[in-house]
Design a protein around this nucleic acid. Sequence first.
DNA 1: CATGGCATTTACGTAAAAGTCAATTGAGAG
DNA 2: CTCTCAATTGACTTTTACGTAAATGCCATG
Lengths: 128, 128
Amino acid sequence: MREYYSITELTREFDVSTRTLRFYEDEGLVQPVRRGRTRLFRPSDRHLIRQIMRGKRLGFSINEIREIIQMYKEPPGEVGQLNLMIKRIEEKREDLRQKRRDLEETLAELDQAEESCVERLVELGVNT
Amino acid sequence: MREYYSITELTREFDVSTRTLRFYEDEGLVQPVRRGRTRLFRPSDRHLIRQIMRGKRLGFSINEIREIIQMYKEPPGEVGQLNLMIKRIEEKREDLRQKRRDLEETLAELDQAEESCVERLVELGVNT
DNA sequence: CATGGCATTTACGTAAAAGTCAATTGAGAG
DNA sequence: CTCTCAATTGACTTTTACGTAAATGCCATG
């Protein structure tokens, strides 16, 4: 496991700009350490970025991603906080399950659409 | 099957503003008919809105949604067009499959996070 | 030492997707 | 016909998630 990654390494790996990674730092999503002024990203930061990209692909906003990332962190020590956290996690999971339903429906409709196209192609192929 | 829906009916059903539905009309995603100036949404428009909302929840932009909606329409009559369409559909499906992987990973991590919380709760429960 | 090549900071810009507001308009109730 | 209330239109504003440009720092290499 590498100790540090430079900002440009990560921009290449995740296909984002330096601006974007700095933006995520401003938003408190990652906290790379500094050597002088240059950012050094640790494996944990890299993993966070991976999670951020996943969240983005799923259409979550930065705020939602921030919430999700909070959930991955160490569980809080206080019972009330823990129960609240569990409730929030359950909500997010319901959200994701809805997305999954949406996704399956969309995939099914696209399957149908493709089939129509193929059928149409066969018709045209037969008639020529 | 009802013949027409008013704009406010649909805003209530889908929990969006009238502004949003008009915006979708401006964008050419729906084309309700008019009686005078009032919009009459047909079942097909309603179904389109349902598809738009699904796309939104999955994080697709308006343009992407427009593309997807195109795919649901009647297949084109020309072979070249049909092949292009099939290619596009396949791309979208790959996109959706990526989203599905992202989704499953995120769900798995949230499961883990919840488990950590529950464990922590048990610990605390035992110690008191 | 100067040249090239990343990095950083600061500041302003921008596209997408609506929200908001004001001024009208139309259609049905009385 | 008049009143009222929902619907429309158009203009302007807002939020999110970065993009872009300018000025400058850091450092290795010839």
